[in-house]
Design a protein around this nucleic acid. Sequence first.
DNA 1: CTGAAAGCGCTTACAG
DNA 2: CTGAAAGCGCTTACAG
Lengths: 348, 348
Amino acid sequence: METDDTQDAPNKGRRRSGRATITDVARHANVARITVSRAINDPGSVSPERRRRVDAAIAALGYVPNRHAGSLASSMSPVVPLIVPSLSNTVFLEVIRGAQSVLEAVGYELLLGNTDYDVEREQKLMQTLLGWSPAGAIVSGLRHSDGTLAMLRRWDGPCVEIMEYGTPNIDMNVGLSHEAAGATMARHLIARGYRRIGFVGTLLEWDYRAAQRLSGFQSALDQAGIELSFVERLEAPSTVGLGGKALKRIFSHHPDADATFFANDDLAVGAILEAPRLGIRVPDDMAVAGFNGLNLGNHVNPRLTTIVSPRLRMGRRAAEMLLAGIRGEPVPQRAQDIGFRLVPQEST
Amino acid sequence: METDDTQDAPNKGRRRSGRATITDVARHANVARITVSRAINDPGSVSPERRRRVDAAIAALGYVPNRHAGSLASSMSPVVPLIVPSLSNTVFLEVIRGAQSVLEAVGYELLLGNTDYDVEREQKLMQTLLGWSPAGAIVSGLRHSDGTLAMLRRWDGPCVEIMEYGTPNIDMNVGLSHEAAGATMARHLIARGYRRIGFVGTLLEWDYRAAQRLSGFQSALDQAGIELSFVERLEAPSTVGLGGKALKRIFSHHPDADATFFANDDLAVGAILEAPRLGIRVPDDMAVAGFNGLNLGNHVNPRLTTIVSPRLRMGRRAAEMLLAGIRGEPVPQRAQDIGFRLVPQEST
DNA sequence: CTGAAAGCGCTTACAG
DNA sequence: CTGAAAGCGCTTACAG
């Protein structure tokens, strides 16, 4: 008999999962276990007749392969950690959704990690997640602790750093230039004739991409010979409510301001919504601009001028680059600028 | 020598992961592999001296346990699938965040699944995810395909059905009664003197929890001898923009309406933002109410009357119930009503 | 195209 | 408290 590979083993009372195993399928289909494995993972390498028998056995037994056994044997697992700095923010939800849709379609599982903008947490998370022998990894940003960098460089799987465009620290990168986005917004405000221009941001030490937007914003103003009138730094997470408070503060501290670039749309929308209550007309008394391109900005009055960041597309692109890396396909552009789009509307 | 368990094996050219293994740590610490395992998983069962040696070896080698080997050997894996119907919605983000925070703290990994409100996709997803031998599972809703139910009932791990309160189909439940929420809103509108009351919802066949709110809303109106004036059904996902369109439609189809309960805050906020453009005063011309309790509703003018659903708490609670189940601790209340809170504001 | 043997890196169950 | 043996359920590498 050709399938004596599937005999019962002694199995001294060890705990088994209870589920059907590849051995059960092999016995049912009267083939060797390895043939079952091939029928699943590389069907073309098995004769149609045997493939049919295996498929029937799988259906009859309700067989679901044990992923851990497979991953252990092949020392590679169809999982991909995606580490984001925040789960309080729609922005990262869209990145997650983009990556998910691509990975799930080819049978990869997303392992979601949240650092809350803490590089120490990122390092611990990454260490744990590497214990799953992931096929690849996606991490947010280009700034990591030395420990995280060392760990990822030692690791041999593909890795994509997302959110900001730049030279990859580890392997690959896809993102946008936040400096360029800030500069673009500065030039827009200048072109519209504003001259007493300020910036509002929250937690800029942690959200350093917002700080990069500020930096690009300021440089472009400088180049045009315009001084940045003020920078308001708030020490709480960005919310619509906080944007309203910021507006109040701007008008008490900087009553002559004629335009403000808010670090993101949440703050900017909050300012627009609060303005009528404060008797402030946007943009006549002060122009308001944001960043992200949240849908909400199109439904406030006046509509918000903002910069759209292609988050969904960035998530997808990162997953696609990773898959190429996993499959050993060439990735000609190891750093990809996903770009952004200025959307001038009524608020400026 | 007591550690002859750690001799080099023949290993005929098989692919190894390259990482340090438990055998490496054991050799380094001059103990048996099982001692390393115990030092990690049950430190109290190892003598302080040996524990110290093991810890030092782990640090020296940068050892990270291979999760797949552990999961395969113990036939249980520290992962928990969380299946949600949508990733386009902040609501589920908060549930995810709540569950994440509890599970991550005790070393469990969240496997995120998205069904896009498709029960067939749910079944496929669950089948794949069970291949990871998860410690437990969290699924959204109490309605599943027969196949999904059969699969989960056959499976022996703990499972929590979330989002809506009711008799668990599988194991445990935590959620809120959407019928009761609808009824509460109806009584609120009646108490404020409204009598020409309507409802707006989107994709009610899929988002059946919104349909449950409508059902409870209508029953409570009936009980008060008030007829539900209209139901507008829109066939696109709920967004702020769609809420504005809905308002327009209400005023052309039902010009005498004096109050509308929107299926969720996105729609309701959209209506409030669009109202001034249509020359409609809220609540004088028409009252607007929502559901979810998004922060945004507190910053529009007028502020939105809504029902707050404790999403973050629900995610946490589900994870806690699951952990209790995993640890074999008793869970006295297998179905938990997490409740909701009516927040009357200026829009009604 | 097919299979027997060996091994992935852990934990269980047993024995002291 | 400590360890040797066996096994979890797959895939790799070899051989035909």
